[in-house]
C-alpha cells in the first residue's frame, strides 16, 4: 500500500472545503446569525464604553494617553480575531470530552487538533475584526504614525504574532478539560484575562511582570508587539523576540492539547 502524503497544501485545501460547506449551512440559520452578530457588537460596545468611562475619570494611565491606549485597544481586538474565528471550537471541547463524543475525531487519518478545530469557523469574529480595525485606524490617524509599506508589513507580522499568544492561551485552557472535569471556569477566566491585554504591561512589577510575560503571556497580546509600531525608536528586545516566542507558545499549547488527547481514556461512553 502506498503511503499517502498529507502536507500543508492538503490541510489548507481541506480547511477551505469544510469552511465553504460550513458557511453555506450558516447562511440557512439567519436568525442565529443576526442574534450572534448583535451579541458580538454588544460585547465590543460594552468594552468600548468601559474604556470611555475609565478615561473620563482618569486621563492617562502609566504615561499612556487616550489615543495610544486606543491604539493598544484596537490592536488587541484585531489580534484576538483569529482565536475567535478559527479556534472557537475549543469552547465545545469539554462537553465533547465529558460526553465521550470526542472520540470521533480520533478515527480520521488527519491531525486530531486540526480536524477538531476545522469543524467550527466563527463568522462573528469578523465583526470584532472590523471594530478593531476601525479603532486602530482612528487612533493611528490621531497619533500621526507615518504610513509606509514597511510599517504596514511590520503591523501585519506583529498582529499575527500577537494572535498566536491568545490562541496558545485558549488551547491550553481548553485542554485542561482532559484532566479536570469542570474546566469551564478555567476557560472563562482565561478569556477574561485577555481584557487586561489592552493595558500597557509596564504596570506590572516584580514576579508578576514575569508571570504575565512568560507564563500567562498577556503582555504579548498587544503591548510588546504594538511597541514596534508605536515607539519605533525605542523597541525593547522582547518585542523583536515576540514572533519567535509566539510560535514557541503556540507549539507548547498544541503539544499540551495533544498530550491531553493521548492521556485521556475516553470513558465517557
Amino acid at each position: 500500500m502506498e503511503k499517502k502524503k498529507r502536507g500543508l497544501r492538503f490541510y489548507a485545501d481541506i480547511y477551505r472545503k469544510i469552511l465553504v460547506q460550513d458557511l453555506k449551512t450558516k447562511m440557512s440559520y439567519r436568525a442565529d446569525f443576526i442574534i450572534s452578530t448583535i451579541g458580538m457588537i454588544m460585547v465590543n460596545l460594552s468594552g468600548f464604553i468601559t474604556f470611555l468611562i475609565l478615561f473620563r475619570n482618569f486621563p492617562t494611565i502609566n504615561g499612556w494617553d487616550y489615543y495610544h491606549m486606543l491604539f493598544l485597544y484596537g490592536f488587541s481586538l484585531v489580534a484576538l480575531t483569529p482565536v475567535q474565528c478559527f479556534f472557537d471550537n475549543n469552547w465545545n471541547l469539554r462537553f465533547q470530552v465529558t460526553s465521550g463524543d470526542f472520540i470521533k475525531y480520533c478515527f480520521r487519518p488527519v491531525n486530531v487538533f486540526f480536524y477538531f478545530m476545522s469543524e467550527v469557523f466563527d463568522v462573528k469574529g469578523l465583526g470584532q475584526l472590523a471594530f478593531g480595525i476601525g479603532t486602530l485606524i482612528y487612533a493611528w490617524i490621531h497619533i500621526g504614525i507615518p504610513v509606509t509599506p514597511l510599517v504596514i508589513a511590520k503591523l501585519i507580522v506583529f498582529l499575527i504574532t500577537a494572535s498566536l499568544f491568545m490562541i496558545a492561551l485558549m488551547n491550553a485552557a481548553a485542554a485542561t478539560c482532559f484532566w479536570i472535569r469542570n474546566s469551564g471556569y478555567v476557560m472563562v477566566i482565561m478569556f477574561r484575562f485577555k481584557d487586561f491585554a489592552k493595558y500597557p504591561s509596564s504596570i506590572f512589577s516584580g514576579i508578576f511582570k514575569f508571570l504575565f510575560t512568560f507564563i500567562i503571556p498577556i503582555a504579548f497580546i498587544a503591548y510588546y508587539p504594538s511597541l514596534v509600531i508605536l515607539d519605533p525608536s525605542n523597541v525593547p528586545l522582547l518585542s523583536w523576540l515576540s514572533p519567535l516566542l509566539g510560535v514557541l507558545f503556540f507549539w507548547l499549547s498544541y503539544t499540551f492539547w495533544m498530550l491531553g488527547v493521548r492521556k485521556y481514556d475516553f470513558t465517557g461512553s
Partner: peptide, 18 residues
C-alpha cells in the same frame, strides 16, 4: 424559542456585567 444560545447568552452576560 431560538437555537441561538450563544448570542442570547452573550447579550445577557455583557449587559449584566456592564
Amino acid at each position: 424559542y431560538t437555537e441561538s444560545t450563544w448570542g442570547i447568552n452573550i447579550v445577557k452576560e455583557t449587559i449584566v456585567l456592564l
